[in-house]
Structure formats: C-alpha cells, structure tokens
C-alpha cells in the first residue's frame, strides 16, 4: 500500500497577530511553526494505515527551506520519506500550489506506482482556501471526499464519514482516492525520541518548482478591528463568586 500526506508549515500565532511592515505577511520573528492542524491528522492516519497494511508513506510540502522542519516532524511520527517543493518564501496561491503538488505526485507515481490514498487537510489554518486537495484529485482524475472525521479501508474501497449538521454523512469510494480530513479524525501521537532520531536520516527529495503569476493575488493583510469588548473585573479569587452569579442572573441564564 502507498499513502501520501500533504502538509503546510504555518506559524503558531498565539494571542495576537502582528504583521510585517509591508502588511503582506505575518511577522513571524518571535513565533514557532507547526504543521497545520487538520493535516497533522492526515499524517497520523497515513502512519496508522501503513503500520496496519505495510508499504510506503510519503509526506509532501510546498514551502520555504525551513519547512523541512515540518517534514522531519511528520517523519518522526512514522512517515518513511519526504518530498520538499522548495520555494523562496513567497506566497503561492492555492491553484499554483495544487499544480506543483500534482506534478510532484505524478513524478513519484511514475517511478513507484500510484498512491492508494493521498491525504490533505480540508483547509489550511492560515490562508483557508478549501481547494488544494480537490484540485489535485481532479488533476489525477480520482474521487475526492472532503472534511472527513473517520476513514475505514474496506478492501478496494474506502468508507468515509464527513461531519455535517446533525451527524455524519457517509461516502464509499473506490481506491485510489484523495481524502481531505479534519482535526478530530484521530489524536496524533507525540513523536518518540527514537522516532525523532530516525527522522534525521530519512530521505528528503528536494524539487524547486517555479512560481506562476498568482490568479488570486494577495495585496495586503489587515488585523480586523476588535469586537469592542471592555473587560469589567468581577474581582479576584473565590470572593468573586457572588459577583459572577449575579452577572449570570442578570444575563438571564440562571
């Protein structure tokens, strides 16, 4: 069995987002980075499927040279190897990202055979375009099911549960397929120390696609005005309980 997981490096934004001087990016000078949350669950699912069925697992990302950290993180969880579509740090729109990933996936498949499943996050935490996985699926001519909270192999098919209002909708599609997943699909494991050690020597293939002119072109970012909340202190410690209860009564919920 062959499984791929596509991930994105995103900053851990903390409590307040600061922008760069030209307002075209987040100021990440004092921020850490992580795998975008939905995609972390795609990585975990890929590792579980290969643990259960044996085979080859690959993690792909399009991002700056530093994104190798997230590829190593995915390999520390158990992914076998990585493909890094390296950029110069400029923003790529979703359409261009999907095009470059499609090309890299096709190249790997022509050498090693098709992936049974390619995992994506339903949407990235930062740009939230809701489309990269779907575009890659269309390019490959494969079925794509989105927003998944449960994935079960059933022979040559996969049963997919998608969260909707009032429960879950079920889809059953033939493999090979492209699946976009959401956090809650599983609880990603913490990397073990031996896992981290092994990840250091796992192979990372680097390709450098050229960036096409974006058709969804970022002009600038802005932090929206606050909601105008002005905190009123109800006191401190256990002595504040009375004021809290009075507030709840006033709000009509007690």
């Amino acid at each position: 069995m062959r499984i791929a997981a596509c991930i994105k490096r995103v900053p851990i934004t903390g409590g307040r987002i600061l922008l760069t001087d030209d307002a075209r990016a987040i100021n990440t000078q004092h921020l850490g980075f992580t795998i975008s949350p939905h995609e972390e669950c795609g990585v975990e699912e890929a590792v579980r499927l290969i643990e259960a069925n044996k085979g080859d697992s690959v993690v792909l990302t399009l991002g700056p040279s530093e994104a190798v950290e997230q590829l190593r993180d995915a390999m520390a969880l158990g992914i076998d190897r990585a493909i890094h579509l390296q950029t110069d740090g400029q923003e790529w729109d979703a359409e261009a990202t999907a095009g470059a990933l499609l090309e890299a996936i096709r190249a790997d498949e022509s050498a090693n055979g098709p992936f049974d499943i390619i995992f994506f996050g339903n949407e990235s935490a930062d740009s939230g375009g809701f489309q990269v996985g779907i575009r890659v699926a269309y390019g490959l001519g494969r079925p794509c099911v989105t927003g998944l909270k449960k994935v079960t192999l059933e022979g040559s098919q996969v049963r997919c549960e998608q969260q909707v209002e009032g429960g879950r909708d079920v889809y059953v599609v033939p493999l090979p397929a492209v699946l976009t997943v959401k956090e809650g699909l599983n609880l990603p494991r913490y990397p073990s120390v031996p896992g981290k050690m092994r990840a250091r020597s796992k192979p990372v293939a680097v390709v450098t696609p050229s960036r096409p002119a974006p058709r969804l072109e970022l002009v600038k970012l802005a932090v929206p005005a606050g909601q105008g909340r002005r905190a009123e202190s109800l006191g401190s410690g256990a002595a504040a309980a009375q004021a809290v209860v009075e507030m709840l009564q006033k709000a009509g919920v007690l």
């Binding site: 987002i17 072109e217 970022l218 002009v219 600038k220 970012l221 932090v223 929206p224």
Partner: peptide, 16 residues
Amino acid sequence: RLRWGGSLLEEARLHS
C-alpha cells in the same frame, strides 16, 4: 477574504 478563521483579513485581486 477571511484568513485564520477570521482572525485576519486579506485584500486580494482575482484575475479570472
């Protein structure tokens, strides 16, 4: 458009 679940706004040009 919204980014980061609405924590950030993006002004963009859509060439289409």
